[in-house]
Computed example of a mutant assay.
Amino acid sequence: MELKPAFLAIAVLCLGLPPAALSQRAPPPVAETPEPAPAPRHVNLTDLLSLAGPYGTFLDYLVRTDVIRTLQSQADAPGGQGVTVFAPEDSAFAAVGGAALPGLAADQLRALMLCHAAPRYHPLSSFAALAAAPGPVLPTLAGGEQCTVNITYTAGRIRVASGWTRAARLVSSVYSTPPVAVYALDRVLLPRELFPNEPAVAPVPAPAPPARGGDAADGAPAGTGHGFSRSPSCRVGAGRVLVGHLTLLASVFLMM
């Protein structure tokens, strides 16, 4: 019976201690879990090219050669580097000879379409560095060197060149969000390996300046002093002189 006060005293002391003093092991710290990185945005290239503008011809060739599936797989590859597509406008395909593209074999046409895509996402800000690098700097999905292209960057204008064809101008950025970039071109990229017999596109000659000092439309050289002017005013003046002479002769005849 004498032990009860001792037990009561110990119980009172335990109640007065903080909870941390009663526990033998401190609770483990709570580790903060980092937020997962956002997944790459899925872009349907078929819908994009269908709705973005005048790229129906390009999309038709991509679907016909099944290159659209290759581009979509490159864009959707987990952990991949993305894809950059150079999309010629419909007017660019219209400028190519009517039988040039339909005359290609199936594997050649597929290679040509693959020449219009790079296996990496390239934002607009990267083209200045690409232009400064020596030699062909941009490999394409066609593989090898047959469709490797050059980039030029002058006064804010970006051009893409390949093979014999004149450099295509990058008209606008259709879409540029990782992992997909699509840029509009005003020309079709035609590598020399696929078009060995095609001549280079000649520049359009400037219009001749208008002739001065004469009526060039009538065939008389201006300023040479040869030939008669055939302007309406001269013809009218000559007619008036002839009428005056006839009137004078008629008056003299009547007076006789």
Rank of each mutant, 00 (worst) to 15 (best):
L3G: 10
P5S: 02
P5Q: 07
A6V: 15
A11G: 06
C14G: 13
G16K: 04
L17N: 10
P18D: 11
A20P: 01
A21H: 10
L22T: 00
V30A: 13
V30H: 13
A31F: 12
E32D: 13
E32Q: 15
A39R: 10
H42F: 04
L45F: 00
D47Y: 06
S50G: 03
F58A: 07
D60A: 13
L62E: 07
V63P: 00
V63T: 10
D66F: 11
V67D: 01
R69K: 09
T70K: 09
A75G: 01
A77C: 07
P78E: 00
T84C: 04
T84W: 01
E89A: 02
A92Q: 09
F93K: 13
F93N: 02
A94N: 14
G97M: 02
A100L: 15
G103Q: 13
A106Q: 15
L112Y: 15
C115Y: 14
C115T: 06
P119Q: 09
R120W: 02
Y121G: 00
H122K: 06
S125F: 01
S125K: 08
S126M: 05
A128F: 10
L130M: 08
G135I: 08
L138H: 09
P139R: 07
P139D: 06
G143M: 04
G144V: 14
Q146N: 03
N150C: 00
T154R: 15
G156C: 03
I158Q: 04
R159T: 13
R159N: 11
G163P: 10
A168R: 05
L170K: 04
S173K: 13
T177E: 15
V180N: 08
A181Y: 02
V182T: 00
A184C: 12
V188N: 11
P191T: 00
P191E: 00
E193D: 05
L194Q: 04
P199F: 09
A200F: 02
A200S: 14
A200D: 05
A202F: 08
A202V: 04
A208F: 08
A208R: 14
A211V: 05
G213H: 06
A216K: 08
G219I: 08
G223N: 15
T224L: 05
T224E: 07
S229V: 06
R230C: 08
R230V: 02
S233R: 15
R235Y: 09
R235Q: 12
V236F: 14
L248I: 01
A250L: 13
L254N: 03
M255Y: 03
M256V: 08
